[in-house]
Amino acid sequence: MVYVLGVNLPDRNLVKFALTQFYGIGHVTAARICARFQMHRTCRVRDLTPLQVTALASFLSSPKDSLSPPRYPTATPDFVPSTKTHQELAMEFRADRLRRETENKQPEFILRRLRDKRIRPDLLKDLKIEAELKQEVRENIAHQKMIGSYVGRRHAMGLPVRGQNTQNNAKTARKLNRVERYA
């Protein structure tokens, strides 16, 4: 078993399913984390290298401080592959880079990426797990109770909040009516 941030990850599980052992990580987030660390979908916890386990633990401990994954430029729709040799392309690239450095401009693909609205911000930067997420949930419930909302009152009485059935609906309704009469 791999022990990461107080959570045991079973050796036989796939990494994307083992990550769901953390409070606050679901299947979609686990898949994003696996993609970020380039773990294929059939990778098991026992197959992780110590470097990958360390990188995963450091990311999960503070996602805001971690570096974003590198973004590689993609070809434009009008791209046509060149028939030049590798040496000719290398010479052309060096000359273009030298010209750009003298002009002190950014490459076209970076400017295109900045203009492109399809590039989304890193969704894993705002990831909250375990104690931090539980604290936020507690604060939200306390806020609901403090403002006296319907949901807050149901939390305070220990009743279902999202429309679930209780074991005795009549008793619950009487209890809630009593509270509303005095409120």
Rank of each mutant, 00 (worst) to 15 (best):
Ala142Met: 10
Arg44Lys: 15
Val28Ser: 13
Val2Gly: 05
Arg153Asp: 11
Gln106Ala: 14
His143Arg: 12
Glu136Thr: 12
Ala156Val: 06
Ser58Thr: 13
Pro121Arg: 11
Ile119Lys: 03
Ala31Gln: 14
Pro121Glu: 13
Glu132Phe: 00
Gly158Asn: 03
Asp96Gly: 05
Thr54Cys: 03
Leu159Phe: 09
Arg94Asn: 11
Lys128Gln: 13
Ala55Thr: 02
Asp126His: 09
Val137Tyr: 10
Tyr23Ala: 06
Leu48Cys: 05
Ile129Gly: 04
Lys125Tyr: 02
Gln106Tyr: 10
Ile33Glu: 01
Arg46Trp: 02
Thr54Tyr: 00
Met1Asn: 08
Val137Leu: 13
Arg71Tyr: 08
Glu130Met: 11
Lys64Ser: 15
Ala142Lys: 08
His27Leu: 11
Lys64Gln: 14
Met1Glu: 05
Val137Gly: 03
Lys171Trp: 07
Arg174His: 03
Lys175Glu: 06
Arg113Lys: 10
Glu136Val: 11
Leu89Val: 09
Asp116Ile: 02
Arg162Met: 09
Val80Trp: 00
Gln21Tyr: 13
Glu132Asn: 06
Pro70Glu: 08
Glu101Leu: 12
Arg118Gln: 12
Phe93Asn: 10
Arg46Gln: 09
Gly163Met: 04
Ser82Gln: 06
Arg36Asn: 04
Cys34Arg: 04
Arg71Asn: 08
Thr85Pro: 00
Lys134Tyr: 07
Asp11Ala: 09
Ser82Met: 02
Asp11Ile: 01
Ala131Glu: 15
Met157Gly: 06
Val7Lys: 00
Pro77Trp: 04
Phe22His: 07
Tyr182Asn: 14
Ile25Asn: 03
Thr83Val: 12
